[in-house]
């Protein structure tokens, strides 16, 4: 899918200072004082973070930085020890995961959760919201849900085509490759028509050829007006698609800004490579 680079240039955040916790002009998600301890370890301790609406934000950091934990907390899959956050100005901390998803904040998982024994199409249809046939008594009366189901199916087919999975439609999801499952999970999340999609390592285990097409899909999502937050380790990917980069280390927010400012940031370099006292020669390791 071709990407209009002019649109992308406009969507960056010009005028926003690259300092941790900076306020954004139009935040869809605003996080305040989120803390999560696991025993004696502080997994997440984020004082303030705003996610700009209709932008692609990359969340990076070394292993164990707390990125996935933060995802789990924000989406209701884990409960914080302290903290509050709002989605679209509505407080959603303490809300169960399914209700967060219903509001339009949908996540994917680092370890892909394709439902193996369901067909690819059924995986997709599961994602659709407000299906009348999901209520017990209506489920017993097919004439009540059949037409709704058909329109969901049309939408699912459209998305499957867009993600090059059309030919897998009637196969069981368990027969798919790892990369195809990543695509399916993303497509399934889109079936719920989210406004904010949070992708946990969408490129992990995906072959390079497929990575390019996945990147194209993610950029296309933002062009469609979605907000995307994704965790990623591959810096080429981050540079390629993100409008804004947020860096975490040891549970804390250590830097944020456009990717070129991040590459030069000494704190970030230290976090990834470790500090050496009295050595200022950090040239050549910026990326």
């Amino acid at each position: 899918m071709p990407i209009n680079s002019d649109i992308r240039a406009v969507r960056g955040l010009p005028g926003v200072a690259p300092t941790p916790g900076v306020a954004k002009p139009n935040p869809i998600l605003a996080i305040e004082g989120v803390v999560r301890h696991f025993g004696g370890i502080t997994a997440v301790d984020v004082e303030h973070l705003e996610i700009q609406s209709n932008a692609i934000t990359a969340l990076i950091g070394p292993n164990g930085a707390g990125k996935t934990t933060l995802f789990n907390l924000l989406t209701g899959f884990d409960q914080p020890d302290a903290g509050r956050w709002t989605f679209d100005d509505q407080p959603i901390h303490g809300m169960p995961a399914y209700r967060v998803a219903r509001l339009g904040m949908v996540r994917t998982f680092q370890l892909t959760k394709a439902l193996s024994k369901l067909s690819v199409l059924d995986n997709m249809k599961l994602g659709a919201k407000n299906q009348s046939g999901e209520r017990f008594f209506e489920a017993l009366a097919p004439w009540r849900w059949k037409s709704g189901d058909r329109s969901i199916e049309t939408r699912a087919d459209g998305l499957l085509e867009r993600f090059n999975l059309g030919h897998m439609r009637d196969e069981l999801a368990g027969t798919m490759s790892g990369g195809q499952r990543k695509l399916l999970e993303m497509a399934r999340a889109l079936m719920s028509e989210p406004r904010l999609i949070m992708l946990d390592e969408p490129m992990a285990g995906v072959n390079p050829a497929l990575t390019q097409s996945l990147l194209g899909h993610i950029k296309a999502l933002a062009d469609d007006g979605l907000t995307v937050v994704f965790v990623e380790h591959d810096m080429d990917v981050v540079r390629d698609i993100s409008d804004w980069v947020v860096v975490m280390s040891e549970g804390r927010l250590i830097a944020e800004g456009p990717h070129d400012s991040i590459g030069r940031n000494q704190t970030v370099i230290d976090a990834y490579l470790g500090t050496r006292h009295g050595d200022s020669s950090t040239s050549g390791v910026t990326e």
């Binding site: 899959f77 995961a97 399914y98 209700r99 959760k113 193996s116 399934r188 719920s192």
Partner: peptide
């Protein structure tokens, strides 16, 4: 198959 996947799609 997977409860968390279902939860993440907004089902109780």
């Amino acid at each position: 198959e997977d409860e968390d996947a279902v939860r993440s799609l907004g089902k109780n």
